[in-house]
Design a protein around this nucleic acid. Structure first.
Lengths: 192, 192
DNA sequence: CGACACATGTAACACGTTACATGATTTG
DNA sequence: CAAATCATGTAACGTGTTACATGTGTCG
């Protein structure tokens, strides 16, 4: 329901028209999650169906404005007031993947972990670069970027953690191991 | 595509029937992501439509088995071989929420952050407890749980980071502040 | 017998997402 | 003029998810 609520939040600032909503959504999230224009209209239609927004006439140039209804306001309030529940979040594909990989015969779990690690590390570098060469440091965009960074970091740490656990389970895979990414961030905490 | 791929992965171990697939999916992920049985059949039908699985007869008790096709095998291989791309992941609702909250008038961003922080911290405690009182420490389930923990920790850190940034922007909100959760994990890293 | 788990399946809907059609307006 | 951008919209599809119907077997 990210987009749905996102549009509602934008409308909290006053009536907007479709194209405008896309532009604002993208600019406020730093273009991190591009939004197909068509989707704005689809979502707007659904919001109208649910009586959270309503058409608010057009301006001189024929732009079709939408405004929040009373229910829409309430919805936005509730969204901002209620924490994002962990149960409402989508299933974590990576976690599922690894959990299943472990018990699936013929799958080299360690390899899966390492490939993912390399890739996540690459993403991390990209984010860092992006952050470095960011002029006009918009606060919102910066925080979104940091969110991505924090998440990627956590993922790398978890992958290292997984590898440690897997190593403890299976003796040792091969003598020398080529490390692709940067230095190990955390020396894995001891057993349980 | 988590469930889709999940079922395929389970079938990599050999033919299964619907009910069995649900049971295994849930047990292998420690019941973290409950799966409606109906969805197994829906997904199975779609997989058959895409020629990734095919009916493989029934056993003595009439259980309808499904098996991977050649294409199904390939798909599983590819899934395990290819890292989960960050672009393919769903939009992060929390990040969007905060990014939009910042520019939305009449929204107390700090309050949003703190409510979320409290809630995430609570989830973190729950996970930790769950981990503590876990007998039969299944590796996969343990890693899934750790994934949730790492993510929640990262989220708390990020929220603290956000609060610091927000504080630096706006002077100071009120004299005394009641801290609900545990002690501050990270003293926020310095400026940029 | 009644409740409950096992087992299969379908219908319906939600949201997200894309591709396409169609104009108006701006700009090189 | 042609291309690009602005702007609105629709049709179609995909996955995830639930609610429901239906039947069998088991156990107290």
């Amino acid at each position: 329901m990210s987009i749905r609520h996102g549009l509602l939040a934008l409308l909290e600032d006053g009536p907007r028209y479709g194209y405008q909503l896309r532009a604002e959504f993208e600019s406020r999230t730093g273009g991190t999650w591009p939004l197909n224009v068509g989707q704005v209209y689809t979502t707007l239609a659904r919001l109208e169906r649910d009586e959270l927004v309503q058409p608010a006439g057009a301006d001189d140039e024929g732009h079709v404005f939408y405004a929040l209804t009373a229910g829409g306001h309430t919805e936005v309030r509730t969204w901002f007031t209620t924490p994002v529940q962990r149960e409402s979040r989508p299933r974590d594909e990576l976690a599922i993947k690894l959990a299943l990989a472990i018990a699936t015969p013929g799958v080299d779990v360690r390899a899966v972990v390492q490939r993912q690690r390399t890739d996540t590390l690459r993403a991390l570098r990209d984010y860092t670069r992006l952050k470095a060469r960011a002029d006009e440091p918009d606060l919102a965009w910066l925080l979104v970027l940091d969110s991505l960074i924090f998440q990627a970091e956590a993922e790398v740490r978890w992958l290292d953690h997984c590898e440690a656990r897997l190593t403890r389970r299976t003796p040792a895979p091969s003598p020398s191991r080529a490390r692709t990414g940067g230095a190990r961030r955390t020396t894995e905490e001891a057993s349980r």
